[in-house]
């Protein structure tokens, strides 16, 4: 039986700015089961970062939670005490950041940092160091005992990201948030990171929320996918459904745009013309309307709800086209 670990329920988050409220997230709903890998895919400005910082409650001072809940193991993280939140971070929920070059403290050895991260454990220093070395070898760092004595600058970017993964997984968290962990790396290193992440995830049975704008990586790693555009979920469902049978024009166009998709040399590559709308001054109706080539009068009139398309696969999309299809 699948057990829900994280549930984002109708979450709306604004940033207060001089120009008025910037509606960064609007009615976001999705869930993550225990031991599952869910990918969040979307381009700049879609709200990926706001979503992560809302889950961890590490938000900027001008952030306003307007509506909804973030439930982790049934508890709403948005109204627990700061102390309780702090005891969750790094033990039950941990994170791997985008930039491996800035994740580690440059003036402490890797060993020191891996000891520090175990501050909650009652094990002896020797045991903690042993555990650190074990984790390093689990992410494929050769000669871990000697490496523990080295500083971050003595490691390559790919190694540093693998160390960041090792550190995030030390406490055997139930949820790992991976925020574009491969964006700063070459394709060959990206493959290594994905392999390590997958094998550790299977060993520890931890759930992963994998954020990326790279469709290829999402397709390869994830069980389910949530597609975001300009602060809203436009489509979500099983990875095969999303890539094989996309039901939102944005998802379709995004997949078309990926040059990995086009095998023959193309003179003209597909694009999505236009810009993401201003979130401080939301247009009426569907958020994707202005860039959509299938927009209808109805799209201007009201915002399409995220509607279930296939019950079995949990495929949902927010587009009026699907309503028309179902009606006819």
């Amino acid at each position: 039986m699948t057990e829900v670990l994280l549930e984002i329920d109708n979450l709306s988050v604004d940033y207060e700015t001089g120009r008025g409220d910037l509606k960064a997230l609007r009615n976001i709903s999705f869930s993550l089961n225990k031991g599952e890998i869910v990918g969040i895919v979307g381009e700049s400005g879609c709200g990926k970062s706001t979503l992560i910082s809302s889950i961890l409650r590490l938000t900027a001072p001008n952030t306003r939670f307007r509506e909804g809940e973030v439930r982790f193991k049934g508890r709403n993280l948005l109204n627990i005490s700061e102390q309780d939140m702090r005891s969750l971070r790094g033990s039950d929920i941990s994170i791997v950041f985008q930039d491996p070059m800035q994740t580690h403290n440059p003036v402490l050895t890797i060993g020191r940092q891996m000891l520090d991260i175990q501050h909650r454990s009652s094990a002896t220093k020797a045991e903690k160091l042993h555990r650190a070395a074990e984790m390093l070898s689990a992410v494929g760092i050769p000669d871990p005992q000697a490496r523990l004595k080295q500083f971050p600058h003595e490691f390559s970017g790919g190694m540093r990201q693998r160390i960041a993964i090792a550190m995030a997984l030390m406490s055997e968290p139930d949820l790992l948030i991976a925020d574009e962990p491969t964006t700063a790396l070459d394709a060959t290193l990206e493959v290594q990171i994905i392999e390590h992440l997958r094998s550790l995830q299977q060993d520890m049975n931890c759930a992963v929320l994998f954020i990326s704008h790279h469709l290829g990586v999402i397709a390869e790693l994830c069980d389910r996918v949530v597609v975001m555009y300009a602060g809203a979920v436009v489509e979500s469902g099983d990875v095969r459904e999303i890539f094989g049978n996309p039901k939102h024009p944005y998802t379709r166009r995004l997949i078309d745009c990926d040059p990995g998709h086009i095998k023959e040399r193309a003179r003209v590559l597909p694009t999505i013309p236009g810009e993401v709308p201003d979130l401080a001054n939301l247009p009426k109706g569907c958020i994707f309307r202005e860039r959509c080539d299938q927009a209808m009068p109805r799209c201007t009139a009201s915002v399409p709800p995220l509607q279930t398309i296939a019950e079995i696969t949990g495929h949902r999309a927010a587009c009026w086209l699907n309503h028309e299809e179902m009606a006819s």
Binding site: T188, E190, V191, E195, E220, G244, G260, H261
Partner: peptide, 25 residues
């Protein structure tokens, strides 16, 4: 070949015959 095989595809059923690079540069 390693570089080409590391190229990912937006298709969950793509058969990727990966050639793994050993170690670091």
């Amino acid at each position: 070949r390693c570089l080409l095989s590391a190229n990912s595809e937006p298709d969950p059923d793509a058969r990727l015959e990966r050639i793994a690079l050993k170690g670091e540069p």
